[in-house]
Design a protein around this nucleic acid. Structure first.
Lengths: 135, 135
DNA sequence: CTACATTTGCATCATTGTTGCATTTGAATC
DNA sequence: GATTCAAATGCAACAATGATGCAAATGTAG
């Protein structure tokens, strides 16, 4: 499935910025940050355009945002996540890369009476295998 | 234990800003954001002073930061968390309050070979009991 | 009380999220 | 292919947060 297909499917206009974002995420096959995506895109888009493109793509559930912490947000294709929607994410403190941990589903946390959950995020921070070897 | 005791214990200078921050967190007995703490403090401290005070208090493990998402950080007394260090946190999308869910420990996620974890955060977002009634 | 290291306040900068508005562009229609 | 109009973009501008350098103020040990 090509970038244009994602846009057509949701009746979104085909703009180079949107296509580029989707293409970059597809090519990487692991979650990328906004700056990582920007670096790989030829077009020098305005920051606001980028911001709004992500917002649009997220609203149409084409991309999915993974919030690592208060200064790190990564984007992945929503399709890649829909099968096992709620799984933990591993963030490497060394190389800043994010891995989806699909081997285990997120535990269901029992909440106090009257509380209802809409979403649960599990973020594991540590050192990945390739960084372990580097050090 | 009073604010001064926490500072003395770590041989930190007793400044009104630090004392105020600790006092405010103790009084609230639930995690507070920087702005919530600022609002409750009489002294109109510089933003940088605030920022560095939190940093110092966190480095000495007097306070603990709970990162909810890319734009929400809450602070709690580290002592309140040490007993059951790793537990999930519930964030109410309505009133923005945070609750420690101490009834369940955080699950241990099996990681791929070579990966090592330093910390795991579990954030559950939803609606708390008191907000449910309000709506 | 003095001396000195620490802390504070201020200036300044970077990044991210956000909105308003004029201009440009995509795509449906003629 | 040209016309048209809603949608997307670029720009200006602002807020919040994180961060650093430096001179002035402050805490505390002696």
């Amino acid at each position: 499935m090509k970038p244009i297909d994602y846009l057509n499917e949701h009746k979104l206009k085909r703009t180079s910025c949107r296509e580029g974002i989707i293409q970059t995420i597809i090519s990487a096959n692991h979650p990328l940050s906004e700056s990582e995506i920007r670096e790989q895109l030829a077009g020098n888009y305005d920051r606001t355009t980028f911001y709004r493109s992500f917002k649009t793509l997220e609203e149409h559930q084409i991309v999915h945002r993974i919030i690592i912490d208060n200064q790190t947000v990564k984007y992945a294709l929503a399709k890649q996540l829909s099968a096992e929607e709620h799984h933990p994410h591993f963030f490497c403190n060394c190389c800043q890369s994010v891995q989806c941990i699909t081997t285990v589903p997120v535990q269901k946390i029992p909440l106090p009476d009257g509380y209802s959950a809409s979403e649960t995020s599990v973020i594991i921070k540590g050192i990945c295998a390739s960084c372990k070897d580097k050090i």
